[in-house]
Amino acid sequence: MARVLDWLRGGRRRREAEVMAWNTKLMGSTLARAAYDQGIAGYDAPAVTEPVPAGLTGRLCRQEDIEAPWLRYWCGRQRFAPLYHRKVWEDCFVPQAVWEAGMLVPGKRALGFAVGAEYLPSLFAAHGMEVVATDLDPGDRRARDWIRTAQHGSSRDTLFQPHLLDRDAFDARVTHRVADMSSIPADLQRGGFDVVWSVCSFEHLGSIEAGLRFVTEAMRCLRPGGIAVHTTEFNLHDTGPGVERGPTVLFRRRHLEALAERLRRAGHHPLPFDFAIGNGVLDRFVDLPPYARNEEWPFPVDSGETPHLKLSVRGCVSTSAALIVRAGG
């Protein structure tokens, strides 16, 4: 009987934890909608028709960026709303950094890793860049989950965005090929690119060291003066338990500082990194799983409106981080 009671109490605690998660999402959704009502972000935020300098360096995702004109410009170009979501921030940070580096011009060559279904290959091609977009071989067992969740770039057709450029221009400028980030093909490492990028990818290589090694080795793909822009998962707790091995790892401040030193020793120039977490109320809101819409809640909640700048990953408070590195030589 005691075991049965313990089991029942455990089930009750799990259900109560689920209700707490629902309450968190409801509160976050209310905060986000109040911010959207001010017109500085969200679906009704005013459009920005020209790119705006921001002086980006390495940094963490912050509320103020979602509300900034530079981000609204790239949202407009890609036709998605400036919502309080770190993936929106990542997809806008990369083109902003490339533009500020003077590389978003015809004739420059860009190499993307683990591109999935990103808009960036079409966006860069729309500016006249030549793009080589890569992803894992679809036959690789590591690609199964990405294919299942429609996040794998299995062909060039996956990358075509007709609102950005016409098909002939896309076909002329975008090449799709297989590449493993853990073992970059030798022909890509001949310094033939002006831009290298990846969006939330190198944390999936199995370990902290594997991710750091990828960023360092990918610099070989760049011409001197070229620019690398990468986003990844970041653990705001620099001490205590972390997530440093497995399908998704979380980098800490000390890891990124060690990476910067490694890059400098190799003759490259990482831009300074700003570790400030932000001062907005949504910078301190931590989203809880499940992160997608859950139809089983007894009350309707549009979880797509829940702020997702910070989130809990296996008990660690995580966000997105972005790195910018100039190639030496």
Rank of each mutant, 00 (worst) to 15 (best):
M1H: 10
A2D: 13
A2G: 15
W7A: 14
L8E: 06
G10L: 14
R13I: 06
R13Q: 13
R14Y: 10
A17P: 02
E18S: 11
T24M: 08
T30K: 12
T30C: 15
Y36L: 00
G39R: 07
G39P: 12
G39Q: 06
Y43L: 11
Y43R: 13
A45V: 06
P46Y: 12
E50A: 15
E50I: 15
V52Q: 10
V52R: 12
V52H: 08
G55F: 05
L56W: 07
L56Y: 07
C61H: 02
R62W: 04
Q63A: 09
P69T: 05
Y73E: 01
C75T: 02
G76N: 02
G76L: 03
R79E: 13
H85A: 02
P95S: 12
W99Y: 14
W99V: 04
E100M: 09
E100L: 09
A101E: 06
G102Q: 13
K108Y: 05
L111Y: 09
V115S: 03
G116A: 06
G116F: 07
A117E: 11
E118D: 14
E118R: 12
S122W: 02
A125V: 03
H127R: 09
V131P: 05
V131E: 00
V131Y: 00
A133D: 00
L136Q: 04
D137Q: 08
D137S: 09
D140Y: 15
A143C: 10
D145P: 07
D145L: 09
A150C: 11
H152V: 01
H152C: 12
G153A: 07
S155I: 06
T158E: 12
F160C: 04
H163K: 13
H163E: 14
H163A: 12
D168K: 14
A172T: 11
S182A: 15
I184P: 04
I184K: 05
P185I: 05
A186K: 14
D187R: 12
G191V: 00
F193R: 01
V195F: 02
S201A: 15
F202C: 07
G206M: 06
S207L: 07
I208W: 01
T216C: 12
R220A: 14
G225F: 05
G226L: 01
I227P: 03
H230W: 07
E233H: 11
N235A: 10
L236N: 04
G240T: 07
V243Q: 14
L250E: 07
L250S: 10
H255S: 05
A258L: 06
H268A: 03
H269N: 14
P272L: 10
F273H: 10
D274S: 11
A276H: 13
I277W: 03
N279R: 15
G280A: 10
G280I: 04
R284P: 01
A292P: 08
E296Y: 11
F299P: 04
P300K: 12
S303D: 15
S303K: 06
P307F: 07
H308Q: 05
K310P: 00
S312K: 08
S312I: 00
S318T: 13
I324P: 01
V325Q: 01
G329T: 08
